[in-house]
Simulated assay, not measured.
Amino acid sequence: MPYKASCHCGQVAFTFEGEFKEALACNCSLCGRRGSLLWFMPREQLQLLTPDEAAASYTFNKHVIQHRFCPRCGIHTHGEGRDPKGQQVAAVNVRCVEGVDLDQLHVHHFDGRAI
């Protein structure tokens, strides 16, 4: 199913295909503060509708994940990195996806603080 996602002001927007029934809630020092719900997919499935430079990036800890957000409205839209096998992945903030009933998603809680 095709989805569209964006930040609050629309400066960062993208589409992707997929079927998701669950999302991940991480309790690491960053995710715990921003409250995003994440869904992972291969990076090539995420198609930017706005220029890549429209989003700012933040890294921390091991500096391997690019946490992408809008520098205008501050909303975290997605992250980019590599999975344990070295494949490029994207983690979409499901709260930014249009038409998703968050109450219908199973939320898997991940202990990011333990890493």
Rank of each mutant, 00 (worst) to 15 (best):
P42H: 06
H8P: 10
G35A: 04
G32K: 06
E44T: 11
L30G: 08
F14M: 12
S57G: 09
L37Q: 07
E22R: 15
Y58F: 13
C26Y: 08
S57R: 15
G32A: 06
A55E: 05
T50Y: 00
R34G: 06
P51G: 01
A54R: 00
T50E: 01
L49H: 08
Q45D: 09
A13F: 07
C9A: 01
E17G: 07
P42D: 12
E17Q: 09
Q45K: 14
T15N: 10
C7V: 02
L48T: 08
Q45Y: 03
K21E: 13
E22G: 07
Q11L: 13
Y58H: 11
A55H: 07
T50V: 01
M41V: 05
C9N: 05
L30K: 10
A23D: 05
C31G: 06
L48W: 09
P42L: 03
F16P: 01
G10T: 00
P42K: 12
C31R: 03
R34K: 15
E44Q: 14
G32E: 12
M41W: 02
T15A: 08
C31K: 02
A23P: 05
K21Y: 09
A13K: 04
F16L: 01
P51T: 02
E19A: 11
S29Q: 12
A23I: 08
R34I: 05
C9E: 02
R43E: 14
G10P: 03
G32T: 04
H8C: 11
V12E: 01
L24G: 09
T15C: 10
